[in-house]
Each structure stands twice: as C-alpha cells, then as structure tokens.
Simulated scan of single mutants.
Amino acid sequence: MKESTSKAPKSRKPRGDGHERIPEILAAAQRVFSREGFAKTTMRRVASEAGVSPAGLYLYFSSKEAILVAIRDQTFADLHKYTRDAVIDVVDAEQRLRKHLTAYLRYATTNPDSYRLTMRSQLIRTPRAGRPASAREAIGREAFNDLLDDIADLIHPDESHDENITHELAETTWAIIHGLSSLAIDVPDFPTSGIDNCLNQALNMIIAGIRSHEPGRSGIRT
C-alpha cells in the first residue's frame, strides 16, 4: 500500500485554559512580529504560530495591535521587576543607581525582541510609554518612578529635591541607557570597547552629571 505523503495539519490546543493560552499567544506573536515585521503580520499568521484557530485567537485579542499592547505591558512589568530585584538590598544611593541601570541594560540585551517591540510601539500607533492621556494610566510609570527616586536620593537624601530638575535628569538618564541598550541590540560588534567598558563609562558620566546638582555645587543649566 502506498504511504500518504500529505502533511498533518498543525495540531490545535484544546479549548479552555485561557490563563495559559494568553502567554503562549503572546510568545507566538512576538516570534512572528520579530521575524516577519509587524506590518506584514496577520492575525491568521499569529493564530497558526500559536496553534489556535483564527476564530479562537479573536476570543482573546481583537487585533494585532491589541496583542502588541499586551506584549508591551508584560515587558514593562518584567523590566520593572528585574530592575527592582537588582537593587532590593542596596542602601548606598550611587550603587543603587548603578545597579539599576546595569540591570536595565542586561534585561534589554537578554530580551531583545520584546524590548524592540515595546520601545518602538509608537511607530505603529500604540500608546506611547510615558505619554498616555492620563499619567495614572502610564505603562511603565512605576519603573520610571523608581528611577526618579534613585536620582533624588543621590542628589538630596533629605528628600528636599527640586522635582523639575530630578525629572529632567531621570529622562536624560533613561535616554542614555535606552540608547546604549538599543545600539547593543541592533548594531553588530557595538561597542568595540566592550559592553561592560562602555556601560561603566556611561554610568560614570551619568553619576557625574547628577552630582553636579548636589547642594553646594554649580549645576549646569541653560
């Protein structure tokens, strides 16, 4: 008897267990988005990767944009936990900030796909991190608040800091560590001096800049 050469259809998971399905769908979507690009990805393609029917996928997410928002939310939650765990037992303000930023870079470079998708989500009209309609709804706001607190403690341990300057410094600090993280992810052989050396130099410059605003020092203002 001649053997059949037809391929069996990709098996689909049994109905139910929604709490387990969502992480699987997000992981599958992240693979497809990263491999094929968001613009070219269809819900049908995500469903196939996740092993569910297109109709079944719509039970969980109304669109691929909604899937990306969920990936972004989970990434910010994971990043927040990762950086917070890194400094949980650190008392010294400077060392805490150094460990915080080091953990940020480590998270980004060990989770490049989710980091890219999250930080570039504004390119496809999903809500921008840090710029929602309401500050209370900001995804990632808790992580940014931790950075604000670390910088404030470094300048004014007595909590009498200038909130405007602290916010400016926090945004600038994030821009530096985000830029380094993105370059380390996307540019082959960057930095040529080695990521640890480059990170150390970046941290030294960040700390020096922040300390220039300590009481009794002449901060650089324009």
Rank of each mutant, 00 (worst) to 15 (best):
M205E: 12
P54H: 03
H213L: 02
F38R: 07
S218F: 11
S48Q: 13
T41I: 05
D113G: 01
T110P: 00
R96L: 02
T109R: 15
I67Y: 01
H156Q: 14
R72H: 09
R116N: 14
I177W: 02
A50P: 00
L101G: 07
N204F: 08
A50I: 00
R45C: 07
T102L: 14
R141W: 04
A175K: 11
Y82V: 02
V32Y: 08
A55W: 08
K99G: 03
F76N: 11
T42L: 01
P112M: 05
K10P: 08
D113N: 08
K13R: 15
D85L: 11
K64S: 03
A108M: 01
L79V: 04
V90T: 15
R116W: 04
N164D: 13
I177Q: 07
R31V: 13
M1H: 09
T166S: 04
L57A: 03
S62Q: 11
S11G: 13
F61P: 02
R44F: 08
T5R: 15
K81S: 08
W174M: 12
G56L: 02
A170C: 07
R96N: 02
G56F: 01
F190H: 07
A27Y: 01
V90N: 01
R15Y: 07
G18D: 15
R15F: 04
V69G: 02
D162C: 04
L101D: 10
E65G: 13
A175E: 13
A133Q: 10
F76K: 05
T5M: 15
D17Y: 11
R96M: 02
I139F: 00
L59V: 12
V32L: 03
S134R: 14
K2P: 15
E49P: 08
A152Q: 06
L148E: 06
E214L: 12
S114Y: 05
R35D: 13
I25A: 08
N111T: 00
T192H: 13
A77W: 05
F76P: 05
G209M: 03
I210V: 11
Q201T: 14
A77V: 10
M205F: 10
E24P: 03
E168W: 10
S63G: 03
A29D: 02
D146M: 07
I71V: 10
A55E: 12
E163A: 15
A8S: 09
R15S: 09
S63F: 06
R45N: 05
Y60M: 09
Y104C: 06
R128A: 12
I220A: 07
I195W: 09
Q122D: 12
A135I: 13
T192F: 13
P23E: 06
I207R: 04
G18N: 14
G18W: 10
T222A: 00
E137D: 01
S134L: 07
T222D: 00
N111E: 03
A77P: 00
E24L: 09
Q30F: 10
A133C: 12
C198F: 14
P127S: 00
I210Y: 02
T42A: 01
A50E: 01
G209W: 00
